[in-house]
Design a protein around this nucleic acid. Structure first.
Lengths: 122, 122
DNA sequence: CCATTTCGTAAGTGATAACTTACGGTAAGT
DNA sequence: ACTTACCGTAAGTTATCACTTACGAAATGG
């Protein structure tokens, strides 16, 4: 009796949400804003082991948030410039819908405001 | 300004990320865009039990994404109009930093472009 | 060629989280 | 007052996740 089935093809912003939800992973991503860095350098900044950082970077890369550039034996990770675009698009969509729904709610509430037993605004 | 510490009191966008990372919870939040809905109505739309929806709504409420309005024995949940504002602010900050870092990277790369051993484009 | 450095992956473990059923509490209807 | 409807919470279960150590692969240097 298993639960939790989800869509076979996760959308871009879905992976971005999951990727940035973890504090350590988000910290790594934010560290990368300063410029390209190697894995061991990122591991030394944080209090986690190097393999952990590698796994986090893999998640960030799958989400399209970081890029890799091999340099010798090292691998320089950097933030993908427009990696956050899907999240921003999703935000704008939801934002617009919410505003429209709010306007509708205001309208219908003004039309028949006899059904409210309690109210709180904003 | 540029860096952040993990504070004992989680920042607003932190909770928003965690709240919207779960597919079921995000679906509930998106269902709420159509307008205020009761818990049982949300539970029937989804394939999850009613208590599960209540727990999800609690998380969304803690994140500041939804509001509650009691109506009889029911409780109408609705999206908070500016609940996504912290996330948008965070996005704008990171976005700007990334662009600046990118500009810096371009500059330094042009100044001394002898350190590149390989390059790849997406 | 051999050693070193840097990294990714495999395997295993502890904690977290998303779900379930069961129960109690509050508001409305008869 | 009793029943019904709707909801939140508690307790327990299971899958997922973040982390660790161990090991193997690829590039650089002597």
């Amino acid at each position: 009796m298993t639960y939790q089935e989800q869509s076979p093809t996760p959308e871009p912003f879905e992976q971005i949400f999951s990727a940035l939800a973890d504090p350590t992973r988000r910290a790594i991503f934010e560290d990368l804003r300063a410029g390209p860095q190697a894995v061991s350098a990122l591991a030394e900044s944080r209090h986690v082991s190097r393999p952990a950082v590698s796994q986090h970077l893999k998640v960030l890369q799958t989400a399209g948030l970081v890029d890799v550039r091999p340099k010798g034996t090292a691998r320089l990770y950097s933030v993908r410039t427009n990696g956050l675009a899907p999240l921003r698009t999703y935000l704008d969509e939801v934002w617009g819908d919410v505003l429209n729904a709010f306007a509708d709610h205001i309208t219908t509430t003004l039309e028949n405001d006899n059904d409210r037993t309690d109210h709180q605004d904003d």
